[in-house]
Simulated scan of single mutants.
Amino acid sequence: MRRLWYGLMGCMLFLSACTEEKPPSSSGTYSEGVFTINEGVFGQTSGTISYYNRTNGTVQQKIFKQVNGRDLGDVVQSMSFYEDRAYIVVNNSNKIEVADANTFEEKAQITGLRLPRYCLAISTNKAYVTEWGDDGLTGTIAILDLNTHTVINRIAVGVGPEQLLFKDAKLYITHVGGYGTNNIVTVLNTVTDQIETTISVFDKPSACVEDVDGFIWVACAGKVAYLTYPTIDTANSTASGLIRINPTNNAITKTISFGKGKPIGNLIINTANKEELYYSRTSQVWKYHIGTDVEESLFNGSFYGLGFDPVTNYIYAATSVGVNAAEAQRYDTNGMLIDAYTVGVFANGFVFK
């Protein structure tokens, strides 16, 4: 009997040791890496976030659904991180999903938005969201209380507010025009929540970045008219280009025109040196050297989104392939292709940690 008891104890200890030595699962941990925003198909709940692990080169699709067991919603427009939270803007679902930045476990929903586009948190309790309005032509900025996850105020601005840049307690807001056209950058004081001024630029300004000298660069696509799509009606189109703004006095200090019917998009900056702009134009990605005022073509392709990874100094480009799964291509700053991996449908941009 004693021999049997020792045998049973030995088996139990063995099983216990095996259980204790099992390595912990790392599933759901997203403390660093590359995140791709995939809009999905309009009218469906197919918007997703893809995750790329730089260390081992693995890719995970639909990470929010993996963790929470449900879809994000209809048209995942953008995502931003602030401290320990991820703010995922779901445009056609009129909401923001708030998730843990490292695990993507859902924490809250911010509802009651009106075709939201981009969200920018400026403190632990305050964020701003650009909205096109229910009709796509009623531009507003929603102010959020991040403690209660509610909209606490709205500011009427021009049609189609798009991306935001925060500098010196002010927001610089581009206005692409929603379902119409606009040509302004709104300057909003975040202390008073009052509009200080608007700056007239080329038609359809969509993005802005800050350079090494503190100047703000704005990419303007211009209005494109067509004879019979895809043939462009140059005479009735407007010029695209880059605009440089001095935030000290909000004066335009440089204008670069690319001509009519030649839209520019996907403006990003080399965040390592803040001296190089990257953007899409004429089925190519270009690099503009701010110091030397020289533009050079980097690589060819039709891309729906660009991003710059400050960890590897690689340019990420999302292919434009319609309702099929897109591809994220990685390039060095000289335009050499490094590799590529599969992401989601209508991948429009990247966020890096």
Rank of each mutant, 00 (worst) to 15 (best):
Q194L: 08
N313G: 06
P247W: 03
F104K: 10
L188E: 12
T48D: 11
P24G: 03
L4G: 03
Q44Y: 10
V294Y: 01
N324H: 10
G33F: 01
V34G: 05
Y128H: 08
D309H: 01
T282S: 14
E210H: 04
W132A: 10
G33A: 01
K107Q: 15
K22N: 04
E20T: 09
R114T: 06
I37N: 00
N300Q: 11
E83Y: 01
V323T: 15
T111D: 12
V75N: 01
G344T: 00
F350A: 11
V345P: 01
K223I: 02
V176D: 05
L337M: 12
F42G: 07
G177M: 05
A108S: 07
F299N: 08
Y314T: 07
V151Q: 14
T186I: 05
N183C: 09
L242T: 09
E162P: 07
S27K: 03
D193W: 10
F14A: 15
I141M: 12
I143Y: 11
D134T: 12
A272S: 15
L298M: 06
D211F: 05
E210M: 08
Y314W: 10
N183E: 12
S50K: 01
G43L: 02
G344K: 01
N147A: 14
G7C: 12
R3G: 05
Q163W: 00
N182W: 03
N273F: 06
W286D: 04
V159K: 12
T333P: 02
G178Y: 06
N250P: 10
D134E: 14
P161V: 08
I243E: 11
G139N: 13
L146V: 13
I49Y: 00
F14E: 08
V90R: 12
D213M: 04
F346H: 14
